Amino acid sequence: MTIDQYISGMRLRTLALSVAPVWIGTAAGVGVVRDRPAHSPRCAILHGGASCVPDTVRVVAVAVLCLLVAMLLQIAANFVNDYSDGIRGTDAHRAARAIAARLDDDLDAPADRMEVPPARLVASGIPPKHVLAAALVNAALACVCGVAVIVITGCWWFAIVGVLCLAAGWYYVGGRHPYGYMGFGEIAVFVFFGLVATLGTTYAIAGALDAAAWVGAAAIGLVAVSVLCVNNLRDLETDRAAGKRTWAVRMGRTCGTVCTIASIALVMLGAAAAWTATSMLGEQLAHPSVLHAFLGILGAVCALLTGWFASLDIAKRNYMRAMRSLGLLALATALTFNGFALMI
């Protein structure tokens, strides 16, 4: 496997989905720590409590490690998906079928409607064992970073969460009965890319959760679900032929499109509500800040714009462009939350 093939298999355009929840979780965790009464630090290894290092150093270290865990696990999952779908034959002739379907649908379609899904490694001839090895290496590196988080925080039960994440990544399309083929992929994405990644980061930093963390986790979880739905709408015909019963296959293209746009609309509505509430409350907020207000409003505007353009592209079946917009929506949602969460 060459470097270019490895980078292609990482699917860099999707990594915003691992960056955004950690960003949101970090902001929520900082907010919780900020409002907590000062206390003397203890050694996590000896007492299972706070770290021995100063709070700022600890927060940065835990946030960076959580980010590495999230990104490495997602990269590992991308390679596992490539490996499993490749050996099952799901990816065979995916590009050719996609082009044929679009030509049959509209012979006069413009160029941007003729976007071809990215090539998959196993389906393009890369030995499956090389792709599996890449997945295992990234999973191992994620485990190393996860162990570092456990040592710093003293939360040994994070190991159970890590095992569940690894199992979810493998059994999505791997194993004898992959849940991604039965229509549970969207639920798993909401749980692991939304709730687990966000709330896990918040708890690792602060040792507690608050309502803001749950709201942010739900918002970014909806973005992650939207990304997977768009991916499945793009691959609807090939997934149906391969027996992969995603939500898009079960609901059909029209209903699947409506539900995906509705999920995006909920995220946009949340961003607009945060913007409105902050503007109305102003100095009544617990921690008013011009910088945080600016970041929150900037993020909300970007979320509204990227969500709008993504919805238009989904309606027009420009799925590849919609997925790029949704990656930006994930980051805009995190920026919005970062600005507003630190003011409340």
Rank of each mutant, 00 (worst) to 15 (best):
D4A: 15
G9D: 05
M10P: 08
L12C: 06
L12W: 11
L12S: 11
S18T: 12
P21I: 06
I24K: 09
I24C: 09
A28E: 05
D35W: 04
A38H: 04
R42F: 00
C43K: 01
H47L: 08
G48A: 02
P54W: 02
P54N: 00
D55F: 02
V57E: 08
V62C: 01
L65T: 12
C66Q: 04
V69Y: 02
I75W: 05
N78P: 06
N81H: 05
N81T: 02
D82V: 06
D82N: 08
D85T: 03
H93R: 12
A95P: 06
R97N: 10
A101D: 09
A101E: 07
R102M: 07
L107A: 15
D108Q: 13
A109P: 09
A109D: 00
A111R: 15
E115V: 10
A119M: 13
R120I: 06
A123D: 09
S124D: 14
G125V: 11
P128N: 09
V137G: 04
V137W: 07
A139P: 03
V147P: 02
C155T: 04
W156K: 12
W157A: 12
W157R: 11
F158L: 14
F158P: 05
A159H: 04
V163E: 01
L164C: 14
L166E: 01
L166Y: 12
A168H: 04
Y171C: 10
G174Y: 02
R176A: 15
R176V: 10
A188D: 00
V189Q: 01
V189M: 03
F190D: 02
F193I: 04
G194C: 11
T198S: 09
T202G: 07
V215T: 14
G221S: 05
A224F: 07
N232F: 07
D239S: 03
A248G: 09
R250S: 10
M251N: 07
R253D: 10
A262H: 03
V267I: 11
A271S: 15
A286G: 12
A286E: 14
H287W: 10
V290T: 14
G296A: 08
A303R: 03
L305V: 15
W308F: 14
A310I: 07
N318M: 13
Y319C: 05
R321M: 05
M323K: 11
S325P: 00
L329I: 10
A330K: 08
L331P: 08
A332H: 07
T336P: 09
F337A: 13
N338R: 11
M343A: 05
